[in-house]
Amino acid sequence: MVQLISETIENFLVPKHALLSRSDIGELLKKTGFGIEQLPQILSSDPAIKNLKAEKDDIIKIVRISPTAGKAVYYRRVV
């Protein structure tokens, strides 16, 4: 089962998930003016971020392949 999950997130169709550092989070929120509670959520148990050891109120940066923009950046708050 554990192996299956690690294979899943290596699949090319799963977008890249990365954990933002504390300073990056502060910078992002300051730059954009987003309230942290306004961000979309992601479960800390989500298979895509299980290995990142994310905690509550961490922010995950997701880079997706987009049909309109090439690459699109998306942020999710860990709950």
Binding site: G35, Q38, R64, S66, T68, A69, A72, V73
Partner: peptide, 14 residues
């Protein structure tokens, strides 16, 4: 309620 759905409209803002 001002929760974010897309960070840039249509991902490319066009």
């Amino acid at each position: 309620s001002k929760n974010i759905v897309q960070y840039n409209y249509g991902e490319d803002g066009v």
